[in-house]
Computed example of a mutant assay.
Amino acid sequence: MTAQCETLAAHARTTAETYPALRHALQALGDSHSHLRLPDAGQRQRGVIGLYFVGGVIAQVIPGSPADLAGLRPGDLIEAINGRVVGPGVNDGLLPDATLTFDVRARGQRRRLSLTRADAPLSSPVPEGRLIAPGVGLVTLPECGLDPALPGGSTYQEAVRRLLLGLAGGGAGRWVLDLRLNLGGNMWPMLAGVGPLAGTGELGAFVRDRERWPWRYADGAASIGDEVLCQTEGPSLPSLAEDVPVAVLISPLTASSGEIITLSFLGRPGTRLFGEATRGLTTSNSLYELSDGAALLIATAHDADRSGRVFNGAIEPEVLIATNWAEFQTAADPVLNVALTWLAEA
């Protein structure tokens, strides 16, 4: 592997010209989580088709991407890519080719589409919340970028803080936390915002051999050890008592920092997990900046829940039920409905 990297980088004169060697080395690690972050990763997504699918069923379409412009939507079924049946995993069968042919069954009609990879604008998904039933607050946490700024001048953690306070003020006393479309990113704004639902104190830890670095939440602050890494600006919802019911919804798209937030609820007496097993990226990435603004994110530790259980793969739900992506968060959403039934009886 070293010889191949040396060959790939032999004529490099700029940092960018070393990217092929770096990507080869990262692929050789085989951890599925370490990756190269390009200098403009905070502004655009490069060379994407623009969708996420599970077992061929589209779960998410990136706004402004080739998939979006072609009219693909959640719930559409990809039957084949370049004539090959897709696999059961996330984007399983999405080849790296520049142009791909998709055979799709979309809303009762079969279509054949030729999509060419292109750059897409980077969108900042916004946390959302609403009363989903009397006394039940639904909080949806999407992924969070390294920069937690949101359109309109707010931040991710502030948006979640205000959502929780508003829902509690509207009568929410039981909660649904939907992480099914949380692809990961920056865990600290997520934790600072949603921490009141998980509880005060140590909620998990990064673990490497005998070393341990706990993450904590208290009074609007998310910290690692004693170092505060994100703090909300105003008063936060007081942390819930441990027996207050919180249903956490997960899916194969729940990944990386989305899985860290999931782990932050494991071991809490009032929590139950619904949905499908997560992506399995339960490792922590350390960031190493390069001279041109790019960065290597290298998996350097595993994640553990508050009980000390270390994870090396997917987080399994306690109630297994598949998401119907065409009915996501509608009255017909099977995962949400089972969670609401549990909340009504808990």
Rank of each mutant, 00 (worst) to 15 (best):
G30D: 03
E211W: 12
A133R: 02
S124F: 15
G71A: 00
G173N: 11
S239C: 13
I298M: 08
D226K: 13
P269Q: 01
A222Q: 03
H302V: 08
Q60R: 12
I78H: 00
L94F: 14
T7I: 10
R208F: 14
Y288V: 06
G280C: 04
G204K: 00
L203R: 02
L263A: 04
L197C: 10
S291F: 03
A346P: 00
A295M: 02
D40L: 15
T99S: 08
P63F: 12
S154Y: 06
D31S: 08
Q43M: 06
A277I: 12
P189W: 15
T200H: 06
A192Q: 06
F53Q: 06
R23T: 04
Q231D: 02
M1Y: 11
P317L: 11
A12I: 14
C5F: 15
V104L: 00
V335Y: 02
P334Q: 09
R112P: 05
Q329K: 12
G135N: 07
P196Y: 01
V136E: 01
L167R: 05
Q109P: 04
A80N: 06
G234C: 10
P88D: 12
S236Q: 06
A67M: 10
L77I: 15
L290N: 08
E128Y: 13
P88A: 14
P74C: 10
A332T: 11
A159L: 07
R130E: 05
S223N: 06
E289N: 07
G47K: 07
L77E: 07
D40P: 05
A192P: 01
G137N: 05
L320I: 14
Q4H: 14
A346S: 04
W188A: 14
A98H: 09
E227H: 13
R212N: 03
L122F: 11
P74T: 10
S284G: 11
G75Q: 07
D219P: 08
D303P: 01
T282M: 09
P238N: 11
P63C: 05
R84E: 06
A255C: 09
E289Y: 14
L138E: 00
N285M: 01
I224V: 13
M187L: 15
A346F: 08
E227P: 08
P317V: 06
G83M: 13
L113Y: 01
L183C: 10
H11P: 01
T262V: 12
L240E: 00
R268W: 02
P39H: 04
V104R: 00
G89L: 07
P151K: 00
A326Y: 00
A218E: 13
G293Y: 08
D31M: 11
Y52F: 14
L240V: 04
T18I: 06
H11W: 08
G185E: 02
S257N: 05
G280T: 03
L167V: 09
R84D: 04
L69R: 01
T200C: 12
T200M: 05
V248A: 06
R105Q: 03
P134L: 05
A294S: 15
T282L: 09
G89D: 07
A198Y: 02
A241Y: 04
L281H: 14
V48F: 05
N182G: 08
E6W: 13
D31R: 12
T232D: 03
L183H: 15
A314K: 11
D219E: 15
F102A: 03
A70D: 03
D103F: 15
L163V: 15
Y52S: 04
P214W: 05
G275P: 00
E227Y: 15
I321F: 12
S264L: 09
